[in-house]
Every structure is written in structure tokens, then in C-alpha cells.
Design a protein around this nucleic acid. Structure first.
Length: 296
DNA sequence: TTTAATGT
């Protein structure tokens, strides 16, 4: 099977051992009594230009809603109107990007058109660490969104913010960004249409592969003058809260390469632990920790 | 329907 092939290629099968879960969909417990979750005191790239106090307060409420189940890490966090990211200054791509979707937020809106959007540099980072449009030009890679443009079509302002280059990573275009990865994003939007809340964390991975010498190596291309790193893989963690307030978890891992169209999405499902070990991050800890304590 | 780059 293709999925087994992927595991072998990426060399992660070793730490799959013993942690494969009985069920692919794990039901998680709702946390209605989180003790006073205080929003992380980050630099608000968006708040910096806001001078209306009410706007700032509302934006903080929105951010705390997006980050309700925890921060995967606290490195170079930036919050935008409708998504939050942590930026990898060395690789000039995000570490992770978090979104919160609802049936209203993904409703079809013919008035919002992505063709009026342009990719732009994130000036909140030092120029040494910024990715530019020139880096991607003629690189052969797409400027792939992590917070997908299609998830933020409720207003022109929101969709425009997803085009900030700190939300972008180099993705194989034909056969990946425009196919399998796009299908995964569409699947998530469909979930959002039929459930109360969907929380998504997306990001890049750099996974080792066995070299001719039999040793494990991590090898990746860099593009442009700023050496923007091309990830070997991308992950997506999806937490769905149903209308009955039950929680479900799905994790996906895809190689950044041409993927045949006939591979079903479920072949890319991975245990959460695999993605946590590979990324050095822990996702939705406020939910999973609660579940784990109940298992003990 | 949504991805996005490239060439005019």
C-alpha cells in the first residue's frame, strides 16, 4: 500500500511501534471548566496597527477562542484576525498555524474573491528572516497556504491576511498543493459546515530518510536568496466538536511530493504521537491531557 | 470549487 510505502520512505515506522491506536477516531472529553485561560501575551502583528480599544478587545477574544485548547509552542507567535501562527525564523516558514472554523465562517461567499489577493512579506520579522515573493519566483514550488485561503472567505480582510508569507511554505504545486493537500483542506471545510466547531493545526515536517550508507539523514532543498526551506512533509491535526459537544481527533501526514489522485485520504492518517515526536510540538494539550488522565 | 504559476 502507498501509506506503508510512505512510512518506509520517511523512516518513522520505528516510533510508530507500540503507539498505534485502537481507534483512528478518538473521542475526547469536553473541557467546560478550564480554569481561567489567560491569553498568551504575544506580539500582535495585527494589534500593532489597531488604535480602537474595542477592536483590540474583540480580537483578543477571537484569538483566545482559536487557541482555546493550547499553544503547540511559544516561539515567535503572531496572531492575525482569524488565525495564529508560530514562525520558524531559520527556515522562513511557519512552525504551526492554528485555525478555528464554524459553519458560518466557511459559508460560501461570492463577494470574496481570492484573485484580488496578493502574497506579501511579513514585516514584523527582521529582514534576515523574512521570506519574499522573489524567493518563490521560478523556484518550481507553489506558495502553499497553511491557514488555507478558502477557510477565510467570510470577508476580504480575513482572506487577505492568509496571504502573508509567514503563513506560507514551499509546496509541490501540481499533484500536491493543487491535489491531495487541497482535497484535505476541502474535507476539513466540509467538516466545519456540519459541526459546531473545528480546530485545525497545520505545519511542515522535516523527516529523516535512510541514505545509501544505511544511516538516517534529513535532506531538504532551500529556495531563493533567503534559503526558504522546502519541507519534506506537511501535517494537519483536526479536532472536531460535534453539535452534541463530542470531540473527535484526526491527524494527517502527507509527503511534499506528487501524490496519485486515487489514494484515499484515510491512507494519510497518522497517530497523533507520530506527528508530535517528529515536530517537537504537542497539540491541543488541554483536550488530550484530560483524556489521558481518564485512561490511567 | 479551489489550488496556484507563468507568460502575454
Amino acid at each position: 500500500m502507498f501509506s506503508r510505502h510512505i512510512s518506509a520512505v520517511v523512516g518513522i515506522s520505528s516510533f510508530c511501534l507500540g503507539i498505534w491506536m485502537d481507534r483512528k477516531y478518538r473521542e475526547l472529553n469536553a473541557l467546560h471548566s478550564i480554569p481561567g485561560f489567560k491569553i498568551f501575551d504575544a506580539v500582535y502583528a495585527d494589534g500593532l496597527v489597531a488604535n480602537n480599544q474595542e477592536l483590540i478587545v474583540n480580537n483578543e477574544q477571537r484569538i483566545s477562542q482559536i487557541m482555546k485548547y493550547g499553544f503547540p509552542s511559544l516561539d515567535n507567535v503572531r496572531s492575525y484576525k482569524n488565525f495564529v501562527l508560530s514562525y520558524d525564523q531559520r527556515n522562513r516558514i511557519p512552525h504551526w498555524v492554528l485555525e478555528h472554523l464554524t459553519p458560518e465562517s466557511v459559508q460560501y461567499n461570492p463577494n470574496v474573491d481570492r484573485s484580488s489577493c496578493e502574497f506579501y512579506e511579513d514585516n514584523s520579522f527582521h529582514e534576515f528572516f523574512r521570506a519574499t515573493n522573489k524567493d518563490y519566483k521560478n523556484s518550481g514550488f507553489d506558495r502553499g497556504h497553511l491557514a488555507a485561503a478558502g477557510n477565510h472567505k467570510s470577508s476580504l480582510e480575513l482572506i487577505k491576511q492568509t496571504f502573508v508569507l509567514s503563513n506560507i511554505a514551499p509546496q509541490v504545486g501540481k499533484g500536491f498543493n493543487r491535489s491531495a493537500w487541497n482535497n484535505l483542506e476541502k474535507y476539513v471545510r466540509k467538516k466545519a459546515k456540519h459541526n459546531k466547531n473545528v480546530y485545525i493545526c497545520s505545519g511542515p515536517l522535516f523527516l529523516p530518510k535512510k541514505g545509501e550508507d544505511g544511516k538516517l539523514w534529513i535532506k531538504y532543498q532551500v529556495i531563493g536568496d533567503n534559503h526558504v526551506a522546502v519541507p519534506t512533509h506537511f501535517y494537519k491535526i483536526v479536532v472536531t466538536e460535534s453539535t452534541e459537544s463530542k470531540f473527535y481527533l484526526e491527524c494527517y501526514l502527507m509527503p511534499n511530493q506528487v501524490i496519485p489522485d486515487d489514494i484515499p485520504l484515510k491512507d494519510f492518517q497518522m497517530p497523533l504521537e507520530v506527528i508530535e515526536r517528529a515536530s517537537g510540538l504537542q497539540f491541543f494539550k488541554r483536550l488530550t491531557l484530560d483524556k489521558f488522565t481518564k485512561l490511567n
